[in-house]
Design a binder for these strands. Structure first.
Lengths: 212, 212
DNA sequence: TCATTTATGTGCATGAATGAACAAATAGAA
DNA sequence: TTCTATTTGTTCATTCATGCACATAAATGA
């Protein structure tokens, strides 16, 4: 499926639209307007229309968007018609929770293998997912054709582990450690920094308070 | 401590700076330049300097920034000199993992109480944190003077639960559910959407591939 | 003391993202 | 068929964020 060059901000919103389209579709709705969608996803309606328009004229004036059409379209755009397997590196508290997290329902993603160095965990199957020793990383990623991994190891091992992952051919990392890992130019790293997010929330709350 | 009006983007980076300053301080470093910091946090050095300059001239030309000074300054700016207690609503897989997550070490944050509706969990202490029934929400938040909560309930209960939280006086929510909850104007909601982040990463990887 | 190096603080140009506003087109009612 | 209400697709102005580039100032060494 050929893809259009779209702004980063738009790309980030696509999965959000997709999820709400599923909800609409399941509740039997046939059409939806950008205003309705705007209420649900909390994005300005003009932005929604522009986002959609990057892919061509998907709607009808005076009517709105056909839910089924739109859903089918986004399914292809987001590669939701095929299952994407990802790896999990580091089966601690957070890693364990992610193993149980259902990425499959509204996104077609599955954690299909996990890695750790703790001999008490490796060689077993946790929440339906086999846990391998780190030494098997390269082999397994190659066998299962996995190019994306979730990184949930302790901060201290973050960079070292990431280097092993690059070596094993990983193309994208969702980094849950608070360390900003340095990566080769061709690898994409998405940082999810829980403590920082919470800290930022606190900061904004305090400054809200002082505005009055 | 009176605060300066600073851009949103800067505010989001402050906790990141703070964390690296701690690391630098612990490793015994006395001074740091914006260029050095830039390598570590992966933010342009000019941006770092501008971020710092919102708070006045904190550095010395030809020298850099004094780590101890800077650290002390940010500690106050970010309210890190006092412990911030937050609540956790929904003790499922993810909630449980967050209970074990150490927000205290580099950020001075602690989950001091949790809430759920499952009678098998409520009334017990998990990972050192007491778990109450949802009916006790208002009372406990008031008793413990908590205004911030982490929301990790199933999607289906997200809005309903959030409404209860507003009723109980919550001011800020870190929302881990994929639902965009609607909230009163005076409440801040920070969305952390794991599946969407992963989906976005996959999208960008695919489009990277097609660029060549 | 003086020259050189280092590194800050900021002006400026560029680019991205947003949301208001509106013309064009369609739906649906009369 | 005709008219009105609706809703898209897009233009435009504005705001926000970024990073280059450089004047300014301090530190260091000769």
């Amino acid at each position: 499926m050929e893809k259009v060059k779209i702004p980063r901000a738009t790309a980030k919103r696509l999965p959000l639209y997709y999820r709400y389209l599923i909800i609409l579709s399941e509740s039997g709705k046939e059409k939806v307007s950008s205003t309705e969608l705007s209420d649900a996803v909390q994005v300005d309606s003009a932005s929604i229309r522009r986002d959609f328009s990057y892919f061509g004229a998907l709607g009808k004036r005076g009517y709105g968007y056909d839910v089924k059409n739109l859903l089918g379209f986004f399914k292809k755009i987001l590669n939701q018609d095929t299952l994407t397997n990802v790896a999990l590196v580091g089966v601690g508290n957070l890693g364990h929770a992610l193993l149980n997290y259902n990425f499959k329902r509204s996104n077609n993603i599955r954690i299909s293998c996990a890695f750790d160095i703790d001999k008490n965990i490796t060689g077993r199957i946790l929440s339906g997912v086999p846990v391998y020793d780190m030494s098997e990383l390269k082999q397994q990623l190659s066998d299962q054709q996995i190019s994306i991994a979730v990184l949930t190891v302790p901060s201290l091992h973050a960079q070292k582990t990431a280097d092993e992952m690059f070596e094993a051919g990983i193309q994208g990392i969702m980094n849950f450690t608070p360390i900003r890992i340095s990566a080769p130019a061709n690898v994409r790293v998405q940082n999810v920094d829980l403590a920082t997010e919470l800290q930022t929330l606190i900061y904004f709350l305090d400054s809200d308070k002082q505005d009055h």
